[in-house]
Simulated scan of single mutants.
Amino acid sequence: MNYDKLNPFFQNLEVDYLYHLGFDSGQNLEQMFGDVEYVILTRSFNNADTIANEFTKKFYSIRDTDVRCKTIGKRERYHIHKIHNSLIVSHGIGVPSLLICLNEVVKLLWHAKVKSPKFFRVGPSGGLGVNPGQIVVGTEAVTNTLEAQFESIEFGQLHHYPTQFCHALTQDFINAINKNETASIVTGKIIGGMGYYNGQARLNGAMPLSYTPEEQQQYLHKAYNQGVRSFDMEATGFAGFCNQLEISCCEINAVLVDRFLTDEIYISKQEQILHFKKAANLVIDYVINH
Rank of each mutant, 00 (worst) to 15 (best):
S152F: 15
I177R: 04
D35C: 05
H160G: 04
N289I: 02
F10G: 05
F231T: 08
F45R: 09
V106T: 11
V228W: 02
I135Y: 11
T65Q: 14
E181Q: 00
D263L: 06
Q31W: 07
N144S: 11
F276K: 01
L245G: 04
P117K: 01
N7K: 08
A235S: 13
D24W: 02
V130L: 06
K5I: 11
F260C: 03
E246K: 12
V142D: 14
E147K: 14
S152T: 04
K118F: 09
L87V: 14
Y60C: 01
A112H: 02
E104H: 08
D16K: 11
F120E: 13
D66T: 09
I177E: 09
V105W: 12
F238N: 01
S230W: 10
K189I: 07
A176N: 15
N204E: 14
T143G: 06
D172S: 15
E30Y: 04
R202H: 01
T170N: 03
K179E: 15
L99F: 13
Y19K: 07
G92P: 03
F10V: 13
I100Q: 06
F9G: 02
T143L: 05
H290F: 00
K107Y: 15
I51G: 01
I267T: 03
Y19F: 10
N7F: 14
A48T: 13
Y266C: 06
T50C: 14
G73R: 08
E234Q: 09
R229F: 11
N103S: 12
K222S: 06
N178R: 09
N7Y: 15
Y197F: 15
H221I: 11
G237S: 04
S116H: 11
T71V: 12
G129H: 02
K269Q: 07
F173W: 07
Y38K: 03
N198Y: 12
K277I: 00
L41K: 00
I72L: 13
E151F: 10
F276P: 05
F173D: 01
L98V: 03
